[in-house]
């Protein structure tokens, strides 16, 4: 089993490197591998240097990091909420972010203003949901899920209203809410990467505890797991990671839902293995999705959310049917 896992991780890692290189190479201007190498070694033409170092490299890194963060959070939320439908957005992070971003766009703020507003409102939303779900020192996961759904619906209504009243900004708002990395620069990478990496690691520390929580919150506590503390740390860290991811890339759907499931089918349910595998898979998935978003209707760029849903949805269905057949065969 250990050897098998080694092969999975090795393959995934190679695939990530390959996807990153491909992502740097392909696009409106195609850059051959040799030229990429030259640029990294300090040479290459001025054009290639600009395209790679200022545009494609930060973009490839950002999409990998966001894909990683969303997948790790999705894995933990599914475990913690013991709900296969859970994703990083269940607690209202996405609608909160969209709300903030919409306000920022309507007010005519720049790209960083939008990111900042999205970040702040998404955290406020989660805090609100969390406060509602707290009774005494315990947090009810069911209440949290329901409150998240309710507040999302409410926010969506407000967003729709704002869009109706601000026709001119309609497409910008839609584009933002469907996600994308077209405006990414090194500043985004500089602030989001540490938050997402450190946040993911903090959650990873509690992998074994979440394993136990999967078998029931109360029994986990009887196994020596401080359930309430673990829940709080993961909810807060997870929301912070998601809010950061959303603030740079918009609301990219589906990644945080399907990557954990696909990873679980490959490496099994143990979070100590599943979380790192999800992280790498999420990075591959989103980097590749971003690549497709850029090249599929070249030179037009389409929102990455369309790619993740259009490719992720059918693939996920295929896996569901396959696993159904497998369990029927037993």
């Amino acid at each position: 089993m250990r050897v098998k896992k080694g092969i999975y991780f090795g393959t995934a890692f190679l695939l990530l490197v390959f996807t990153m290189i491909l992502s740097i190479s392909a696009g409106a201007v195609k850059i051959p591998l040799q030229e990429i190498l030259n640029v990294f070694l300090g040479g290459g033409s001025e054009t290639s240097r600009t395209i790679i170092l200022n545009l494609r490299l930060p973009r490839a890194i950002e999409s990998a990091v966001v894909g990683m963060g969303l997948s790790v959070v999705g894995t933990f939320f599914q475990g913690l909420l013991r709900n296969p439908m859970a994703d990083p957005y269940v607690l209202g992070v996405s609608s909160g972010a969209a709300f903030g971003a919409t306000i920022a766009i309507v007010l005519g703020l720049g790209i960083f203003g939008i990111s900042f507003m999205a970040f702040v409102t998404s955290l406020m939303t989660v805090f609100f949901v969390y406060t509602i779900s707290k009774t005494g020192t315990r947090v009810s996961m069911t209440t949290m899920l329901l409150a998240g759904i309710a507040i999302s619906a409410f926010m969506s209504a407000i967003i729709s209203l704002m869009m109706l009243l601000n026709h001119d900004e309609f497409s910008r708002i839609v584009f933002w809410t469907m996600g994308g990395f077209s405006l990414i620069n090194w500043n985004h990478v500089a602030y989001s990467t540490p938050v997402i990496l450190i946040g993911s690691f903090v959650m990873y520390v509690f992998s074994r505890d979440v394993n136990a929580i999967l078998t029931g919150e109360e029994v986990a506590e009887h196994l020596g797991v401080n359930t309430e503390l673990v829940k709080k740390i993961i909810l807060i860290t997870g929301s912070l990671v998601t809010a950061t991811a959303v603030s740079v890339g918009g609301i990219i759907g589906f990644v945080g839902l399907i990557v954990p499931h696909i990873s679980r089918l490959i490496v099994g349910p143990d979070n100590r293995v599943l979380v790192p595998f999800s992280a790498i898979s999420g990075a591959i998935f989103l980097t590749f999705a971003d690549l497709l978003a850029r090249v599929i209707l070249k030179p037009m760029e389409i929102p990455i959310g369309i790619i993740t849903a259009a490719f992720g949805g059918p693939f996920f269905l295929y896996l569901l049917i396959k696993s159904k057949q497998k369990s029927e065969g037993m």
Partner: peptide, 8 residues
């Protein structure tokens, strides 16, 4: 009540 809706 034993929860058993997981793959372990």
């Amino acid at each position: 009540d034993i929860v058993y809706d997981f793959e372990f």
